[in-house]
């Protein structure tokens, strides 16, 4: 409970800055409108106007809050207008991509640790893969997969996988190599084979590294899913909400989708953090 006050302080500072920003950025529009109508705005009227515009440059927090309330609680979750529905679409792609990416990441890490050729050759490609802007490659993945008849959830999950396998590879290579020389010698004195060494020593030892990687991977996976929704013609998902919002200048809708994405990421990463605490405590490693 001791850290509640600092957290609340930071939140308060953010809100104050946000409101000041909203007033400052939306003032021009309000002034122009007033000028056209031939009226003079008092300071209070100006502030009131900047915080209640339909398409503000920067919507005020309460406008976003109202929008989120209306599109979550007050809408049927199966409705196309429900943010819960869109979050669900994005989350399912995120989770599938996360699972695929984690699997791919662990598989590559095992290959790198156990196979000298892979050790020498794979890592540069893994790093190169992440230097390509995802915005450039995402449409290609969608188009190519579409061409072979794969549409819907899976292409988005592939983009999520593309982003989320990287932290898992890096973390797991380090984790699987974390047993020290003595532990490996010890395994050798027992004439353990590679599989035993992996399951009894290397894999358990890598758990702290795995969970750290999973947190980064989950966040990356969500970004991947949202990016994957942008070139799909804005059908559904948080990415589609962002895209539709920007087409029609619906800044309130954009911001509420952004906040929703952030909340979703925080929840998903939080769940991994919880699992991390439980598992590592159980394993005597925390």
């Amino acid at each position: 409970m001791r850290n509640v006050l600092p957290v609340l302080t930071v939140v308060a500072v953010i809100f104050v800055a946000w409101y000041i920003g909203a007033v400052a950025l939306n003032a021009t529009w309000a002034q122009d409108n007033a000028a056209r109508a031939g009226v003079e705005l008092s300071f209070t009227e100006l502030v009131a106007d900047t915080l209640s515009q339909d398409k503000p440059k920067l919507p005020a927090p309460h406008q976003v809050a109202v929008e989120i309330w209306e599109t979550t609680v007050e809408k049927n979750i199966t409705s196309r207008r429900s943010l819960v529905y869109h979050s669900w679409i994005t989350m399912s792609a995120t989770l599938l991509g996360f699972v695929l990416g984690t699997g791919l990441g662990i598989a590559l890490a095992v290959g790198i640790v156990y196979n000298r050729t892979m050790d020498m050759s794979v890592m540069p490609w893994v790093i190169a893969s992440q230097t390509i802007p995802i915005l450039a490659i995402a449409p290609m993945i969608i188009v190519v997969l579409n061409a072979i008849g794969i549409t819907g959830l899976f292409p988005k999950a592939v983009i999520s996988m593309y982003l989320s396998f990287f932290p898992v590879v890096v973390g797991m290579v380090k984790g699987l190599r974390s047993p020290d020389r003595m532990q490996l010698d010890q395994m050798k004195t027992w004439h353990a084979n590679g599989i035993q060494e992996f399951w009894k020593l290397r894999f358990p030892s890598s758990m702290p590294y795995l969970f750290t990687s999973l947190k980064v991977g989950m966040a990356a996976s969500l970004v991947g899913a949202i990016v994957g929704e942008l070139p799909t013609g804005a059908v559904a998902g948080l990415g589609a909400r962002l895209l539709a919002g920007s087409y029609y200048g619906q800044t309130v809708q954009i911001w509420s989708a952004l906040i929703m994405a952030a909340v979703l990421a925080a929840c998903l990463v939080g769940i991994i953090g919880l699992a991390q605490r439980l598992v590592l405590k159980r394993m005597g490693m925390a």
């Binding site: 003595m182 532990q183 010698d185 010890q186 050798k188 004195t189 027992w190 004439h191 020593l201 358990p204 159980r282 394993m283 005597g284 490693m285």
Partner: peptide
């Protein structure tokens, strides 16, 4: 001899697995 598990080796550190 190692493969026949002829010896037990005790290292300087106990090296017990915490899990």
């Amino acid at each position: 001899a190692r493969k026949a598990r002829a010896y037990g080796y005790v290292f300087q550190a106990a090296g017990l697995y915490p899990w």
